[in-house]
C-alpha cells in the first residue's frame, strides 16, 4: 500500500558503486586481502619452508618474486605477510577509533570536567612524539602482533577523539537535539542513537586513513626491529630483512616487492576513504563556496583593488 522509499544504506551503496575511485580502491583491497588469505594456494609455496638449494634467486617463472637468503619464496611471504600487516592496521585502527569515538562523543556532549580532563590527556599524549611513546610501550610490553595493535590503539585514539568531540560540540547545538531533550530523551539515547549516526562519515574516513597509517607504522617499527618478532612474516619484517646495503644493491627483489605491496594496499585503502567521503558527505564539496559568498560579493562590487596597508 505504502510505497517504501529506498533505505539510506541502499542509496549509499548504489552511490558508492558509481564512485570510480572508491570502487578501484575496493577492488585493490579485496584482491590483496583474498590473496593473502590464500597465500599458500596462490604462490604454491609454504612461506616458512627453507630451501637450501635455491637461496637468493632473482624473480623467475618458478619463483615469481625470487627467493631470500634462506631459500624462502618471496611471493608467498609477501602474500602471507599481508595477513598480519592488514590485521594490525585494521584492528588497531578500529580499536583506536572506538576509544576515540566513545570518549569524544561523551566529552563533546556532556562537556564539563570530564571533557577538560580528556582534552588535557589527549594533548599530553599528542605532545609526545608517537614514535617515542610506542618505543616506551614496546619496552614494557614486549613485541608481538597483539601488543602492537594495543600500542597503536592506545597512542593513536586522540585524532578521532578530537574529531568526534568537535563534531558533537557543534551537533549538540542543533535544534533537533534540543527537541530530543524537550521530549525527555536520555543522554545515552541522544548520544548514541541520534548524534553518532550524524558523525559516521568523518569516523569512517578516519578509520581508513588510520588503517593506512598503522600499516606503514608497523612496517617502520618492524624495520627498526621493534614491532612484530622477525619470525612472524609481516610486510615490515620483510622490509627489515633488507636493511643490509648489500641486499639493497644486489637483491632488490627482497625489498621492492614488500614495499610495493604496502604502497598498493595503502593506496587502495586511501581510495576507499576518498570514495566514502564523497558518498557519505556530499556537502563537503559545496560548503566553502557558500561561506565566502558575502565577502566575494562585496569584492565584486568594488572590483579587485590594490591592498594598501
Amino acid at each position: 500500500m505504502i510505497e517504501k522509499p529506498p533505505s539510506t544504506a541502499k542509496l549509499m551503496i548504489s552511490n558508492f558503486v558509481r564512485n570510480t575511485t572508491g570502487m578501484i580502491g575496493l577492488a585493490i583491497v579485496f584482491l590483496v586481502v583474498t590473496s593473502s588469505i590464500f597465500a599458500v594456494q596462490i604462490s604454491g609455496y609454504d612461506p616458512n619452508m627453507f630451501d637450501g638449494a635455491n637461496t637468493s634467486l632473482p624473480p623467475s617463472t618458478t619463483h615469481l618474486m625470487g627467493t631470500d637468503q634462506l631459500g624462502q619464496d618471496v611471493f608467498s611471504r609477501v602474500l602471507y605477510g599481508g595477513r598480519n600487516s592488514i590485521l594490525i592496521g585494521v584492528l588497531a585502527s578500529f580499536l583506536g577509533n572506538l576509544i576515540g569515538t566513545v570518549l569524544g562523543a561523551i566529552a563533546g556532549y556532556v562537556r564539563g570536567k570530564f571533557d577538560t580532563i580528556l582534552i588535557r590527556l589527549s594533548e599530553l599524549v599528542m605532545t609526545f612524539p608517537q614514535l617515542v611513546l610506542v618505543l616506551i610501550f614496546v619496552t614494557f610490553l614486549g613485541q608481538g602482533v597483539a601488543n602492537v595493535i594495543f600500542i597503536f590503539a592506545i597512542t593513536g585514539w586522540m585524532t578521532t577523539f578530537r574529531l568526534v568531540r568537535s563534531e558533537f560540540m557543534s551537533l549538540r547545538e542543533e535544534a533537533f537535539v534540543e527537541a530530543d531533550r524537550a521530549f525527555g530523551f536520555s543522554s545515552k539515547r541522544i548520544i548514541f542513537r541520534h548524534l553518532l549516526p550524524n558523525t559516521m562519515s568523518p569516523i569512517v574516513v578516519a578509520f581508513t586513513i588510520n588503517t593506512a597509517i598503522y600499516i606503514i607504522a608497523e612496517a617502520g617499527l618492524s624495520f627498526l626491529g621493534l614491532g612484530v618478532p622477525v619470525t612472524t612474516p609481516t610486510w615490515g619484517n620483510l622490509l627489515a630483512a633488507a636493511q643490509a646495503p648489500v641486499v639493497v644493491e644486489q637483491y632488490w627483489w627482497l625489498w621492492v616487492f614488500p614495499a610495493a605491496a604496502i604502497v598498493v594496499f595503502v593506496t587502495g585503502v586511501n581510495f576507499i576513504g576518498d570514495g566514502l567521503r564523497d558518498v557519505l558527505d556530499p556537502r563537503s564539496r559545496t560548503q566553502v563556496k557558500e561561506a565566502s559568498f558575502g565577502s566575494t560579493l562585496k569584492q565584486k562590487i568594488f572590483g579587485s583593488r590594490k591592498r594598501n596597508a
Binding site: 535544534a175 533537533f176 527537541a179 549516526p197 550524524n198
Partner: peptide, 26 residues
C-alpha cells in the same frame, strides 16, 4: 528522571528552525 518524563509528556516544545528540528538521518 521519572518525574521529568511525566512533565515532558505534559509540556512540549516546538522550535524555530524547521530545517534542523528533525534528525536528518531519521
Amino acid at each position: 528522571r521519572g518525574e521529568e518524563l511525566a512533565f515532558r509528556k505534559k509540556v512540549q516544545m516546538i522550535f524555530q528552525d524547521p530545517y534542523t528540528s528533525f534528525n536528518p538521518r531519521q
